[in-house]
Structure formats: structure tokens, C-alpha cells
């Protein structure tokens, strides 16, 4: 393809090809601080392309393709090319990755132990992880957490954090503007702006962490903590995994071990400060 980039996030090496320069340039800025190994063959290929040649210039619209595609996925305008790239990369991992149990969850770590946060979009799991990652936690990822079947360890996937709507202003007030990508206004997912994780989080992206807590955050309502049984945590995490079924017995073993060895809680919180306080409180109890 005309333009391309190679990006390494956690254990995955991506090759991203594009008919346009802009999405590649935007990716290269966001991922400039990530470790690079250009000789390494790609695990996954993403293609951003125009459905018809003239659509490269005339009302350019970006179709998302790659090794794995979602049939009938709608294209995005070129101004949202970065979002298209992000969606394409997520798709390859969600549908193609088999080395680890893949959880749709954010995670942060401290002292080699991880807090895994799983929830629907809108639960605030990304924002919580991003905020904690600005304090004395290592951000492991805002979208995927990988569980190594053999060891039970959590592995990081610290892609650029996808901040949405209110979270954008909340983070912009705290971090250096150089760590924020361009504002993508009015996307199908609302306003989006990417946050580059802290350099220490990126440098530690290959360092595994032992799961210490599994949280199921829910934004809105009074602050509350609800202990969750192994069975419920198990079922919720099977739903949060895109490759649990494909991994067969190895996936089952990894997930049962995770919920047996790791305490799980549902948390409800009215605002970010309260959410972070709940995480710290549960962490202090778990560490005891």
C-alpha cells in the first residue's frame, strides 16, 4: 500500500497500510515513543483503504480492513483516519490473537501486581485506568488485558488510550498537551482524543504482573463495593473475552485459575475521584 507504519504494542507487532498519508502520520506521532523493531515480522496486518480509487480524493472515506474484517463495517471520513486505524488494530487482536486469553479490560499495576478492570463501554474502566496511570500506578492498558495461560500472569497492551467525551477534559487538565493526540470530534463513538501513556509504562510493556484484583466498575450512583463470587466473575469474564471459546481447554483453565486466585468486586462510583479512592481502598485490603 502507499503508506505504511509498523507499531509494537505489548506482544503484538502491527503492520498498518493506508491509501492516505494522514492516518499513518498521526499513528507515527502517537507511537513515536514506543519500542521499535522494524526487522520484526508483523503478527497482524491492518489496511485502511478507499473502496473506489476516486474516493481517495473525492469525499475520502476510510474502510477498515486487514487479516480479519467485520463484514458491513461502515467507513469513516478521512478526518477520523486515526480512529479507523485504532479500530483496525483492535479488530486484529480481538479476532486473531491466540497466545493469551484476551480480556476486554483495562489494567494498572503496582509492585508487580495488577488490578484488572472489566466493564461495558461507558463503565469508566478506561478513564479510571488512565487516571490511576498518572499517579503511582503503571498503566497496562485501557482496552485489552492478556492473561498468559501457563503462568496466570497478566500482560500489558498499552496502546494509546482512547479518551472519550468528558474524560478528555478531565485528562487534558492533568497531562502535558504533548501527550495528547488530535481531537476527533463527532465520531460514531462521540468525541475522542488519544493519550500517550507515560514513558515508564511504555518501557515496562513487556513486564508481566500477577493479577491481584478483578474489578467490575460501574459509573453513576453512590459509591459502593460489592464482593463478587468466583462463578459470577467467571461468567462475566467469558463475556468480556473475545477468544475464550477459541482457546478451548487452555482458556477454561486460565480463566478458572484467574477467578479462583484473584478476589473480584463490583464497584459503583459517582465520579472519578471516588472511583480511584475505591480502587485504592480495595488494593490496601487485598495487599494486607
Amino acid at each position: 500500500m502507499r503508506h505504511s507504519a509498523r507499531i509494537q504494542v505489548g506482544p503484538v507487532q502491527f503492520r498498518i497500510g493506508s491509501d492516505w498519508r494522514q492516518p499513518i502520520a498521526a499513528l507515527e506521532t502517537l507511537y513515536a515513543g514506543y519500542p521499535r523493531d522494524d526487522a520484526r515480522p508483523a503478527d497482524a496486518t491492518v489496511r485502511l483503504f478507499a473502496a473506489r480509487p476516486w474516493r481517495r480524493w473525492l469525499r475520502p472515506s476510510v474502510h477498515i480492513g486487514g487479516d480479519f474484517v467485520v463484514p458491513d463495517a461502515l467507513p469513516l471520513p478521512l478526518s477520523m483516519g486515526l480512529l479507523a486505524a485504532e479500530m483496525g488494530m483492535n479488530l486484529q487482536v480481538a479476532l486473531g490473537w491466540r497466545r493469551h486469553l484476551l480480556l476486554h479490560a483495562s489494567a494498572v499495576a503496582r509492585d508487580g501486581r495488577a488490578v484488572i478492570m472489566s466493564g461495558e463501554s461507558g463503565s469508566g474502566k478506561s478513564t479510571l485506568a488512565a487516571l490511576l496511570g498518572e499517579g503511582d500506578w503503571r498503566l497496562m492498558g485501557d482496552e485489552f488485558t492478556l492473561v498468559e495461560p501457563a503462568s496466570g500472569d497478566a500482560l500489558a497492551f498499552p496502546r494509546a488510550v482512547s479518551l472519550k467525551n468528558e474524560a478528555i477534559a478531565e485528562m487534558a487538565a492533568r497531562v502535558d498537551a504533548a501527550r495528547l493526540g488530535p481531537l476527533l470530534a463527532g465520531t460514531p463513538k462521540g468525541d475522542i482524543r488519544h493519550l500517550i501513556p507515560r514513558a515508564d509504562a511504555i518501557a515496562a510493556m513487556h513486564v508481566p504482573a500477577r493479577p491481584a484484583l478483578i474489578l467490575f466498575p460501574r459509573f453513576g450512583g453512590e459509591a459502593a463495593i460489592e464482593p463478587m463470587g468466583e462463578g459470577e466473575a467467571f461468567v462475566r469474564l467469558t463475556e468480556a473475552s473475545t477468544n475464550y471459546i477459541a482457546l478451548g481447554e487452555a482458556g477454561f483453565a486460565a480463566l478458572t485459575r484467574l477467578v479462583r486466585e484473584t478476589p473480584a468486586f463490583g464497584i459503583t462510583y459517582p465520579d472519578s475521584a471516588a472511583g480511584m479512592a475505591l480502587v485504592e481502598r480495595l488494593w490496601a485490603e487485598a495487599a494486607r
Binding site: 503492520r15 526487522a39 515480522p41 508483523a42 503478527d43 496486518t45 487479516d67
Partner: peptide, 8 residues
């Protein structure tokens, strides 16, 4: 890098 294309 030849493997990129072969894998795809």
C-alpha cells in the same frame, strides 16, 4: 520482513 506478506 518477507514474512509479513506470507502471513497475510
Amino acid at each position: 520482513r518477507d514474512w509479513d506478506g506470507v502471513i497475510s
